[in-house]
Nucleic acid binder design. Structure first.
Lengths: 352, 352
DNA sequence: GTAACAATTTGAAGCGCTTCATGAATGTCG
DNA sequence: CGACATTCATGAAGCGCTTCAAATTGTTAC
């Protein structure tokens, strides 16, 4: 690399020894004023800071963490940034990580297993202090294959079967249960679960929860329309399918695996104008989607504590990094909350 | 740090010299099989790879980039991950960066200027190959203050006034113009712009564009309702305010600064049931919000090419990193596109 | 004036890697 | 068969930092 082309501008980054030279001190002193200012006289501290400012010195963190053997960044590998649930997790994780004086860097797997493991590899190679993994809802192959390394790793929204990692999850069954029981409490008896595919763990567990709630009530039934995804589009399809089955439809309560599904269903019902929500059919969604609360018929929902999950997971990770973590890996289970709105309560619901 | 507490497990990461020892080769050979396999015999390559696998060796990237003086990661500092526009940018940037054999790490500024500059600092200290910055819509102070460093930096969705950095922006005026002209083309003459605050550059420019379109038509007028933000809530407020001004309202076309605003307006109009959209009032939003296309009345919108912006910005950055960039900084201006849907076309619009 | 001690400062060692001059081994050709 | 390439492998130097034992300076007590 010729001197002229180096780094585009040709001006090389000044190093710590440049700073030391300019300030007329030893290199160790520069390091000290940066890392343990209390070990340095006020006078020399000022001289060093002046030199740093004059040269525009920026500490080389690669060298720092190589020499110190510790890093101050934490990596977060996230299944899908397009999903606001994961953005909430990121936000929570960042807050906690920051409190511990570290930084959070995010890598998006974009619903692609290969990218996910590549992202894990990137963080490991960078020797980050630790990694938070909010993985794809798929078998755990990739993460287990990762056991070669010993970077601390905490899972978010995924439970390590073999207790290899700590993690934070939310009780999906409970969420499904809450949603269904709410509808049942409103006196509805012929329920329907909309969501899918059931091969997704989260969906399956929500469905199970709903089944349990229905089983508790003697004359209640739970039907199922399995979808190919959780978007508005899928909700609309499901609603049309439902109407095609029998019109008027034979149900009076719907538990949807996502708010978007619920919205899709409501929209179709609105169009048909035959079904009143919640008069004829009470509907509960899932996720506390930002839009859902603002939509035409505010959707009752089950709220996932995304930020809290991020915070807790980061807390667990920081413990592992500090070495203060318990020997045994633990999985914290957070409880979802029901947020009843108009799509189930009707006019009884007051916007606050 | 005692041996027992080190790294939690106590098992230290193996180094390249461990691999070299096990494979019975020199350390330089290990480096070569990793970085330039063609310089190494097939036989030794295999021996080395076997040793790597056996030890579970993971290359220390901090040491690598320190020694090599180059990094293989690119940083993206993003104003707000909660906004899907920025997620699109991230997705585009990642695709391009990956094509160049590098990795993309994301840091979220979360609409906080202090975090933004901290994030920039983190990436600089990490000596990433380059940084993409999708900044907050605020004065350029922080980024200029950053001039001390010489990490390549490309802006996304922001134009460097002093041409200090290359960048990719979208022509917001054009977007506003397209939206307004579309409504005018439908024969509407009494238009209203909803959005705000106008101190946001993007909003102001969209408004200007709309004004220009209206100025082109002799008898057309453009009214303004300034909002405090671009959410559904603000749209509802604006609509109520409008109705309060005069009922029936004196306008027949609305250009909104976001799809969410448009949805809010439509929802209020729906409730009142007095105004038909688009019969009485044609509405165009902005952003091609995922949600907007699926809503009850699919919202006509102006689409921002987020992914393309990310791709292009990453392309520019890679050029700067490679040193093949033109001397002068350039700002690429991308054009937004109009996507007419039912909220303006009515039944003439067919879902595809 | 000096010994004893604390407070600062110093600078060499080394973190794990890439690089590259050097050497060894093998092949080629007149 | 010797001279010369060519191909591989070697290992020391050094990237910019942290650390820490040792040197230096300042302070207090006697």
């Amino acid at each position: 690399m010729s001197d002229a082309t180096r780094k585009g501008t040709g001006r090389a980054q000044p190093s710590m020894s440049d700073v030391a030279k300019l300030a007329g001190v030893a290199i160790g002193t520069v390091s000290n004023t940066l890392n343990s200012p209390e070990k340095v006289t006020e006078a020399t501290r000022r001289r060093v800071m002046a030199a740093i400012a004059e040269l525009g010195f920026v500490r080389n963190d690669a060298a720092r963490s190589l020499a110190a053997g510790t890093s101050t960044t934490v990596g977060l590998v996230v299944a899908d940034l397009g999903n606001s649930f994961f953005v909430d997790i990121a936000r929570g994780a960042e807050a906690t990580v920051r409190q511990h004086g570290m930084n959070l860097l995010i890598a998006n797997s974009d619903v692609d297993l290969a990218k996910q493991s590549n992202n894990l590899a990137v963080f490991e190679q960078a020797r980050v202090a630790g990694v938070l993994l909010a993985p794809l809802d798929t078998p755990f192959v990739e993460v287990s294959a990762r056991l070669t390394s010993n970077t601390p790793l905490v899972l978010v929204n995924y439970e390590s079967r073999r207790k290899l990692y700590s993690g934070v999850v939310v009780d999906e069954r409970r969420g499904g249960f809450l949603a269904a029981r709410h509808v049942l409490d409103l006196g509805r008896r012929r329920l329907l679960f909309v969501g899918g595919p059931l091969s997704l763990r989260a969906v399956a567990e929500r469905y199970e929860g709903a089944q349990r709630a229905v089983a508790d009530v003697a004359d209640a039934t739970l039907d199922l329309v399995e979808t190919h995804g959780q978007n508005i589009r899928h909700g609309k399809q499901a609603a049309r399918e439902l109407v095609a089955r029998s019109n008027p439809i034979a149900i009076d309560g719907i538990v949807a695996a996502s708010d978007l599904l619920a919205i899709g269903v409501i929209q179709v019902f609105d169009e048909l104008a035959d079904f009143d929500v919640p008069g004829d059919v009470a509907i509960v969604g899932y996720d506390n989607n930002h839009f859902a609360s603002e939509s035409n018929v505010p959707v009752s929902t089950v709220s996932q504590p995304g930020e809290e999950m991020g915070r807790l997971a980061a807390e667990l990770l920081c413990e592992e990094i500090a070495g203060t973590a318990a020997r045994d890996k633990q999985t914290v289970v957070l409880q979802p909350h029901l947020l009843p709105r108009r799509s189930s309560l009707g006019d009884a619901w007051r916007r606050d």
